[in-house]
């Protein structure tokens, strides 16, 4: 099944027919609503426990408000639920502690994760937050593959990270932009020190 055809229903976007079975409604922090099947939800330990604890019936799902997931935006949540729908019914892998970990990225997952770094890290964060073990495995494998065999300079480019020097300079610039007087005070202090003054005040 292709990524595009994964049966996650984004209520705001399309009227894709939903199969007649138990599903749940979730809402992202930017108010996008999704309908996800009960079987797909089982991939997320966190959501599975939540819906079990709520004890919703089909009527409740329709009549009660969607379950809000406050820390995840719609774009990320859509990827998460697409992944869960595609892998519904699959066994949750158990970590056997082997290093290096043997993880294969299926074609569907590779396509799903063919996204920019920012969104990829949001997806990883969401996978961890919602405790979706296999999604966390494949997404971390993708991040590791990006690092394999690279020098520190290449890694900075891959992960779009500044060097420590660049980071310090950016922080200083941001601080100065926020409080231009701070720089003047610092310069005045340095000048007084040069002139031999012991106290600034």
């Amino acid at each position: 099944m292709s990524v595009e055809n994964a049966p996650v229903v984004d209520v705001d976007e399309a009227a894709i027919p939903v199969e007649k079975k138990m599903y749940y409604r979730f809402e992202s922090n930017d108010k996008k609503e999704f309908r996800v099947s009960e079987l797909a939800i089982q991939q997320s330990e966190t959501l599975n426990r939540l819906v079990e604890a709520m004890g919703y019936t089909s009527e409740d799902v329709e009549n009660k408000p969607a379950i809000a997931i406050e820390n995840i935006d719609g774009k990320t949540l859509k990827l998460v639920f697409q992944w869960c729908e595609h892998h519904k019914g699959e066994a949750i892998p158990v970590d056997d502690g082997s290093v290096p970990k043997i993880v294969e990225i299926p074609e569907f997952d590779a396509k799903l994760m063919d996204i920019d770094n920012g969104l990829l890290f949001k997806l990883i964060w969401a996978a961890d937050y919602l405790n979706i073990v296999q999604l966390l495995n494949v997404s971390c494998k993708k991040v590791a593959n990006m690092a394999q065999g690279k020098t520190p300079a290449q890694l900075r480019r891959v992960y779009l990270l500044p060097s420590d020097e660049e980071d310090e300079a950016a922080k200083r610039a941001a601080q100065e932009a926020q409080d231009p007087r701070a720089r003047e005070v610092e310069e005045e202090f340095e000048e007084r020190k040069r002139q031999g003054g012991n106290s600034f005040f």
Binding site: V99, P100, K101, V103, N117, G118, L119, L120, F121, K122, I124, W125, D128, L136, N137, C140, K141, V143, A144, N145, A147, Q148, G149, K150, T151, P152, L155, Y159, L160, L161
Partner: peptide, 26 residues
């Protein structure tokens, strides 16, 4: 969202997939 801001469990998972040379570079 970038690698240094990921939770500890994510960093651990990424490191499990890397060889020692890549870990030293990272």
């Amino acid at each position: 969202p970038n690698l240094p801001n990921m939770p500890k469990v994510v960093m651990e998972e990424v490191l499990k997939n890397l060889d020692c040379r890549s870990i030293f570079c990272l």
